[in-house]
């Protein structure tokens, strides 16, 4: 673990991984999009609208996956004080927020024809919306301090508080939803997913994950370089 936490070693590792992950992202995205938009059958109920799902569902997975990863990194950062763990959460947050936003937007795009409205206070949609706010709060907190170190540390505590709260929020929203909106509301569950649909879905999920890896590596590199420049400036100021 310590081996990869060394920034210089990380730089070399990132340089080695990046071309592969970037290439694989592009290839899988193209293949996945082809399958989901052209080579998969339309749903017998939803028609072509079902194709939104190939973006929506992986984005929803990613929104939770990224937040969980950030929380794990935050715990590592707090316990072992590794600069890279702090930086990881900071680098991943906008990507996670982006996935969450995509999930919300595609969700309401899907809802417009299917439910006849852009937004319903469905338990899942509401939970994702709150998750989006948690991302925004984290990003605002990290950038609110003059000392970037302090911002990331505070962000780490917030992430841990957040990850404890995510299940509570999810549960409470579901509870609230069933009380206020009895069974009349359509769920996103739909029919069980058939194999011709499952394949493009999984391809897209892998593509999204690789995209996440690529972008986070790039952002981490940029962040480290920025810190170096900062240090050089400080050293100059001291002389």
């Amino acid at each position: 673990m310590h081996r990869f936490a060394n920034p210089a070693r990380f730089q070399r590792l990132a340089t080695a991984i990046l071309p592969w992950s970037a290439g694989a992202t592009v290839v899988l995205l193209v293949v996945g999009l082809y399958f989901s938009l052209f080579a998969s059958p339309p749903d017998y109920q939803q028609g072509d609208t079902v194709r939104i799902m190939y973006i929506h569902v992986p984005a929803a997975w990613m929104s939770l996956f990224v937040y969980t990863n950030m929380a794990i990194a935050a715990a590592c950062g707090l316990v072992w004080k590794h600069p890279l763990a702090d930086l990881f959460a900071k680098a991943a947050a906008p990507v996670g927020a982006g996935f969450t936003a995509i999930c919300l937007i595609t969700g309401s795009l899907w809802g417009a024809p299917m439910w006849g409205t852009w937004w319903v206070w469905d338990a899942r949609l509401t939970s994702v919306l709150i998750l989006f706010f948690l991302y925004l709060g984290y990003m605002a907190l990290v950038n609110a301090f003059d000392d970037p170190q302090r911002g990331m540390r505070a962000g780490n505590v917030l992430l841990l508080v957040g990850i404890v709260n995510v299940p509570i929020i999810k549960f409470s929203v579901e509870w609230w939803n069933t009380l206020h909106q009895p069974a009349s509301v359509m769920r996103m569950d739909g029919p069980t997913v058939a194999a011709p649909m499952l394949v493009p879905l999984l391809i897209m999920a892998v593509a999204f994950t690789l995209y996440f890896v690529t972008v986070v590596l790039l952002r981490l590199r940029a962040e480290i370089v920025q810190r170096r420049i900062q240090t050089m400036r400080l050293t100059q100021a001291a002389e």
Binding site: A8, R12, R227, T231
Partner: peptide, 21 residues
């Protein structure tokens, strides 16, 4: 003497130069 920082190898105390470099 030099402006060391956390993002240099030596700040981790284990040297950083590996074979590839």
């Amino acid at each position: 003497v030099t402006g060391g920082n956390a993002f240099d190898d030596d700040a981790f105390g284990d040297g950083g130069i590996e074979g590839e470099d």
